[in-house]
Design a protein around this nucleic acid. Structure first.
Lengths: 321, 321
DNA sequence: GGTACGTGTGTAATCGATTAACTTCTGGCC
DNA sequence: GGCCAGAAGTTAATCGATTACACACGTACC
């Protein structure tokens, strides 16, 4: 920057003013400065700028699993929304591990992100408290924690799940296997709640860890247990369940019905296509980014609750297909 | 940091030395400093540190499409490798757009990443030159550009593709449809080269853009053209081709054979399972990260060329299944 | 003609760390 | 006792920007 100033025959203060679009500098001065800038190929140092202004124009996003297309879509949506507001997103991949999640959160805070979006790996509010204590704007996404005091953006699947449960029961299933997420995550508990409530006698719940392998294992256990329908509460566990079903040579929906929470393009291409509960991922990501930007700008956003939609396709023996 | 120093009754220089594990400070001093640190909940400002040391311990990774599981896997692998060396990764999603790619690259350079991994959206070497001119270590991943002067890490599928082509011809296909990537990407050209070469008379190539929609359109065109086998050069275009095949009610492999470049877990679950060419994504990501770290540390890494593997599953009417 | 005000720039402090150079202190040795 | 080596810690410059304040130079008005 000093070089640019020298080249243009002005002071660094003037260069800075030109760069930041201040009113002061004369058109001719601006001209000279810009000329010097691209003659030297100068690019401002964002670190120095941020150090001085205490703003990085960056949001942190810590997600549970980058390989899960659900989170990839969310990340994409967050990024789009952030970019349209002049912000950049740094993604941290926690790999469903609370420890790695904490590491990432701290790294991002150390780098002074202006705000943080978090898909918490567990219910434990201590990390959230730590962030809040640091005064960094925080929004939770997809999942919440115990006693959360910050805005939360999530999808509510209870209505769709209730409809699904009713349909399964109506179709004569008297033993339904539920492959749920970990009991120490809000989505892990809430999504299976519908089945443990009024259907307590009929449903059997096994908790997985939102990954493919656990879906296969849970499916194996439930099938051995004699269930005639499987509901996987996440697309990766759904994939696992499906591969277990295939490995055993069972036919869908004749031998066993299957439904999955969270849609993916290829679910529609299977034979039969899989019935799913679709989540508004793009909306979730965008809403979360907007909430966070509101928070950064001093507004207090409300919680956002979007709803999942039941998409009947045939894997539960639906009459419509 | 000043507060910590005061609290511990030392100077900031000493605090810094304790934090950086220098030899000098006495055990008792260290003790006092650490006590002050967690009493005050102090966390060092990474911006300031980087400004001073001119090292951010961060790698930039600009990928073509975050929603493409191939790139998601690569990102994941890069991150793992980087983390194990104490580096953090900032991911930029170019969305297959050269413009957005350039924006991201500049943003990352402005933030002074220590090195950059790039999956270039096009062949055009100008962006690569710009980075090199800035003296920032750069490694290309998956694709290369014209006259690249930096290390390149990629998968070579030509052997597997040749084997696939031979098999298709052997099975009696005399019109093979190839859904290739954009002609201005190295992978777009190279992967279809096998078919335009010795099989020039038999194969018909249509270029897509590595996205689902283009896969469907290309498939439609080729099927109308009377091909009896389709080869999609990317998993998303494969998905598109598959949905077109389904939409037309064609049966695989009876009515049409299908093979896809780049494996995905669900390809094995279709009926019949899809024959693919699997790429060593994890290895590619790790190798790229290692090459970049080498470059950063002043070593000059060689190009890396890993090979794709043909996985026969049945969608091309293979006898083995 | 002098006061007052506005306009465009320059000077220098500042953000929060690192680190070279210097000071202070301790103890050993002749 | 004097000198010196080495250890422990302090002072202050520095990274590259932003910005409050000071300054100089016009212009306008009484």
């Amino acid at each position: 920057m000093k070089d640019v100033a020298q080249h243009a025959g002005v002071s660094t203060a003037t260069v800075s003013r030109v760069l930041n679009g201040h009113a002061a500098p004369t058109p001719e001065t601006r001209e000279r400065v810009f000329a010097a800038i691209d003659e030297l190929g100068y690019r401002p140092n964002a670190l120095a700028r941020s150090l001085r202004t205490t703003s990085t124009q960056t949001l942190g996003l810590v997600i549970s699993d980058l390989l899960n297309p659900f989170f990839a879509e969310i990340a994409r949506a967050v990024e789009d929304e952030a970019r349209s507001h002049g912000y950049c997103v740094v993604i941290g991949n926690a790999d469903e591990s609370a420890e790695q999640e904490a590491t990432y959160v701290r790294t991002l805070l150390d780098r002074r992100v202006d705000g943080l979006l978090l898909c918490p790996a567990t219910d434990d509010p201590s990390l959230v408290r730590e962030v809040s204590a640091g005064g960094v704007p925080l929004v939770l996404l997809d999942r919440t924690v115990r006693g959360a005091t910050c805005p939360v953006v999530r999808a509510d699947g209870s209505e769709a799940l209730t409809a699904l449960a009713r349909r399964l029961v109506g179709a004569g299933h008297s033993r339904i296997g539920v492959i749920a997420g970990p009991p120490d995550t809000s989505t892990g508990r809430e999504r299976s709640a519908v089945f443990t409530g009024e259907l307590g006698g009929i449903a059997r719940v096994v908790h997985g860890d939102f990954r493919q392998e656990s879906g296969s294992q849970a499916a194996a256990k439930l099938i051995d247990d004699g269930v005639t329908a499987l509901v996987a509460m996440d697309n990766l566990m759904g994939l696992g369940a499906l591969s277990e079903i295939r490995a055993r040579g069972l036919r869908i929906p004749h031998d066993i019905a299957l439904a999955v929470f969270d849609d993916q393009p290829w679910f529609a291409l299977l034979d039969p296509p899989i019935t799913v509960i679709a989540q508004p991922t793009v909306e979730m990501g965008r809403a979360a980014a907007r909430s966070l930007l509101d928070l950064i700008n001093g507004r207090q956003p409300d919680d956002v609750r979007l709803s999942g939609k039941l998409v009947l396709r045939g894997s539960c023996g639906e009459a419509e297909l």
